[in-house]
Design a binder for these strands. Structure first.
Lengths: 378, 378
DNA sequence: GTACCATATGAATCACAAT
DNA sequence: AATTGTGATTCATATGGTA
């Protein structure tokens, strides 16, 4: 059993005994040590926000290989291993209890997770009387695919944003969020790329320094939404220090807690390096305008082009029938509107939207229906 | 105190006593009554999928799950909230236990909820040994704005998709989902409008018949993804019968359970007016996994790929020769098309059907010859 | 300099039937 | 029950090399 799990296990629901005087709140520092022990040294009701990216308890099995043969570099670190859900719950309860004690009454807490752990965390947050204000979905523009075709692409992670109690006051910079979103209310689903390229912190060997580094854009939006300049943000699972880096950039104070010396070193150097406002990172802040891409299947699903509909081309040379999954079929071919169109014309490619028409007295090109669908959305 | 709350309260964690003989599984019917009582009458391991849209425990001053009924004054608020969550958990545990008993071992369950209840539900699903396959985010194109500007627009709901146990087999129509999404893997975030307009079932007074009617497009995607035609879907919180209507349209059988006579009446009329798709329209892209297997040796035997044929990969990096028994051999390896392909690439595995091509001017992939062989059989 | 192509990789609970 | 063989399976980006 790893250290965190053992500590949580031994303590169970009990609040740890005070270790230090808890008189002073340090800031802009990394506290090197176990997150629960280090939190125990901090004063009551002293921080304005907590951002926590705890272990997800992924429970992965054996190796996973990509179709082309490569092996997926999975998160197999000891810090993500727990004996059971019960152990994970005990650990979560323990660090949440400390977090709650340290948080000001008008502060908020953010926790990020995936389906592996977020339902445990959400339940325990509610049990501890935190009041969920929103759950936020981070939609990844570039998630790892499901290589074996066994499930839906796991393309998002979830963040929970909670006040300390029902009815508690809290900071929400509504205007700033609206500004970030073209003067529309910021929604609970955020589209952002995963952390890669230059932003991803690398070790000496060129390999990623941390397996689960979060994008700065994510922390940028969170800190901008829920803190004022000068306020103090605590991150009990500091890792490579994304929270600290963004807090510094935005003029917030920060406290990081991290157990692994290697991560601490990397984070210190990262934050110390003056971070100029990176233009490329900023671009991801502003919501990319959703590409108005529509899958033909969505028109089928929504009933605009029901399964069984007969399609034909402008000159009525070929016909095909729409099937339940949005594929179409004629006597000789089946597949997408584009593939079947290409195959029939013996062409390398084909734009099915302009090629196919709903058959009937007057032909209606699919592209027109796509426009209808799009305008209904807005 | 309402019926559901009373039943959950009285029974706690206990499985309800059998009420009926549980011999027959009815289908294409609405069972009018409490969901737990009605589920208790259904046989063990009898349904292929469960879709559940349970009450959300909105805590908007409602007394839905308050055991003692009467109005609670402000002093008791904390206790009331705790009590409400506990009671909601007991209710959830009770209906999940029945759902689990009824579900086939290779069946799956879907549950939809919002942040008010989904973390309770997700935790309890895991506690009951259900195995989360994905959490799905329904992104609403037209959510209700946050009028007071105090939070992010709550623009999504969450669905949990679970197998009965870790490692259990389950149905996932991968190709059909890919077809619905323009030949890209279907992701875990789904964009759909809320149910409105013509689709929204209205009462005699023109008002919406049900406060939380789900869009048919949502059920369409779920049923298409996780069931085969003819399989049985149970919806223990049937409401206006969206699950039944879509199941009928897609040629799936269904069982609805609904307590409110008004909803039952509306659902019956709605489903009766829904027409099933005809056989051909219901077709979807077939999963290759379900195609009959062909041994490569059979193609050799039949003369389609005679012994001595030279094979090569798409980039002509390696060559091999077909032998009389359907094995192939190169300078360094001999064995099945798969084994030799894997060995040459130094990969853990290889699909010989798509790796090897008949050498010559224009390469022809073996998979194409396999298709020829298969279609010649029919 | 540019266009094109090949390669690498990201919090992943990733097969199944026959023997 | 454990082993073995067949064979199904990937999207968006970033980076680096070649033409």
């Amino acid at each position: 059993m790893n250290l965190i799990a053992r500590i949580a296990d031994e303590r169970g629901l009990l609040r740890p005994k005070p270790i230090g005087p808890r008189e002073f709140l340090p800031f802009n520092v990394i506290l090197e040590g176990d997150c629960i022990e280090e939190m125990a040294k901090l004063p009551d009701k002293s921080v304005d926000m907590i951002f926590a990216d705890p272990p997800y308890n992924l429970q992965l099995g054996g190796d996973l290989f990509r179709p082309e043969g490569g092996r997926v570099d999975a998160v197999d670190d000891d810090w993500d291993k727990f004996d059971s859900l019960t152990t994970y719950d005990a650990f979560t309860r323990a660090w949440l209890a400390e977090a709650r004690r340290i948080l000001k009454d008008d502060g908020t807490i953010w926790v990020i997770g995936s389906y592996h752990n977020i339902y445990r965390v959400g339940s325990l947050l509610q049990d501890a009387d935190f009041w969920i204000l929103n759950d936020i979905v981070w939609r990844k523009t570039n998630p790892m695919p499901n290589f074996r075709g066994t499930r839906f692409t796991n393309a998002h992670e979830t963040l929970l944003w909670c006040a300390k109690n029902e009815g508690a006051r809290y900071t929400f910079n509504y205007r700033a969020m609206k500004g970030l979103n073209d003067d529309l209310q910021m929604r609970s689903d955020w589209l952002m790329p995963i952390c890669a390229g230059q932003e991803r912190v690398k070790g000496a060997n060129g390999a990623k320094a941390h397996p689960t580094q979060k994008p700065e854009a994510l922390l940028y939006r969170i800190l901008l939404a829920c803190t004022k300049p000068g306020q103090v943000v605590l991150d009990p699972f500091f890792g490579t220090g994304t929270t600290g880096a963004v807090a510094r950039r935005l003029g917030r104070r920060w406290i990081g807690i991290e157990r692994e010396p290697a991560y601490v070193k990397v984070a210190r150097e990262r934050i110390a390096a003056t971070l100029p406002l990176d233009e490329s990172a900023m671009q991801t802040m502003a919501d990319k305008r959703e590409a108005p891409r529509v899958a033909f299947g969505v028109l089928v699903e929504s009933g605009l082009v029901p399964p069984g509909t007969a399609l034909t081309d402008a000159k009525r040379r070929w016909t095909a029938t729409v099937r339940a999954d949005g594929s179409i079929a004629c006597a000789t071919h089946a597949g997408s509107i584009h593939k079947v169109g290409a195959a029939l014309q013996n062409a390398p490619s084909c734009n099915g939207w302009t090629f196919w028409h709903v058959a009937g007295g007057k032909l209606q090109v699919l592209d027109e229906l796509r426009q209808q669908h799009l305008s209904a959305l807005t």
